[in-house]
Design a protein around this nucleic acid. Structure first.
Lengths: 211, 211
DNA sequence: GTTGAAATTAGTACGAA
DNA sequence: TTCGTACTAATTTCAAC
């Protein structure tokens, strides 16, 4: 298992050229689309579906792997069938200057499927999968709460996973493009100018004044 | 691509027997562990790594697929390299009795990687990947806000993805089991008795009463 | 559930366009 | 770069144990 975890310093453009790596053309994206749906497809069949020669498919396949655009291949496992039927989100407030410890402790917790550092009210969001709600309770109160770096937590349960598309691509286009194109690619909008949070409680008329 | 998306009515036990499906033994879990790390491994190599015969590996492999424990195989794609370097979480408050519409509209949005219905303050959490923050802004204010089912939204950006383990298993055990075993498997704890929110702090008002 | 052999397919290495 | 072919190695399938 070779891990390519060093990202380029900058990633800017939205089409093709990303940082220092490979320049992805439409054929690369086609390959990614196929492999995303069927990660075990043979390169021969892949070549056929994409419409290129086998040799070319092998070359591009290797290039995508070497570049890191494809990080690996995995089986999609049904969590319920595997015995982990309960999913919860835990929003964590982390004590400043204890991030390293927080990360280290998290790494020790295999039931954590996902952890992201976020802006906003909390500092991190953790997603866990467990056998039952009691196990979640136990994890939060006994293991998470005992980490000094954890100042506070807030847990919610996931009742249903409506959409789960592990690896989306910029080439995914929506089924029914009713409007021509919103032309919303202004690229100089600073974060400070955005009014996302608190949009709900003030009902800032943002979502059209029907309140 | 055969899809087995009908779950059994009940999923109870934590080890082995899940609902009506296949009974998973330790060998099945070993297979899942290998395939999770290398989804393109040959069944022969899989058999070798698990320590069973080829024929047995083929049988179990097929059984896991047929049962739905393995839903499919996918390539792990680097979002940054693919041109979707910005990740955001959008917490949505949905108008009651408009869930169907909400789901239908979401299905039309390919940039949505994940959407879950949750308990707690909001009704749903959406994760999106986009090229830049402006695109997120545009999505939230123009497309999400225009859905009548959406009453309010709150957006946060993901600054770093600390952990990303797509498919965890109950057999994952933590690296260093310092303590003997917390013995935390009380199974009759009702949800009402759980005090998750603000659990770790006396001044837990931090995250709630800021309105 | 296991082993071994045949048939098929996958992966590699070339030269040519 | 990409394609097409030939060559080698591996995998899958199928048989008997």
């Amino acid at each position: 298992m070779t891990e390519t975890s060093s990202y380029p310093t900058r990633g800017s453009a939205a089409s093709g050229r990303i940082g220092i790596g490979l320049e992805l053309d439409s054929t690369h994206f086609k390959i990614l689309e196929v492999l995303r749906e069927n990660g075990r497809i043979s390169v021969s069949a892949l070549a056929e579906r994409v419409g290129i020669s086998r040799a070319n498919a092998y070359t591009r396949f290797e290039a995508l792997r070497a570049d890191g655009a494809i990080k690996g291949f995995t089986a999609e496992i049904d969590h319920v069938r595997a015995g982990l039927g309960i999913t919860a989100l835990i929003f964590v407030t982390v004590r400043q200057q204890m991030w390293r410890q927080f990360r280290a402790q998290l790494a020790q917790m295999p039931e954590v499927e996902y952890c992201a550092i976020t802006t906003g009210q909390h500092d991190a969001m953790i997603q866990v999968r467990m056998a039952d709600v009691a196990a979640v309770h136990s994890l939060v109160t006994e293991r998470l709460a005992s980490i000094p770096a954890v100042k506070a937590t807030e847990t919610v349960f996931i009742l249903d996973e409506v959409i789960k598309r592990p690896y989306i691509l910029p080439t995914d286009r929506r089924p029914a493009p009713r409007r021509p194109a919103p032309e919303a690619s202004g690229d100089g909008v600073p974060l400070g100018k955005m009014r996302f949070e608190g949009v709900s409680e003030s009902r800032a008329g943002l979502q059209r004044d029907k309140g």
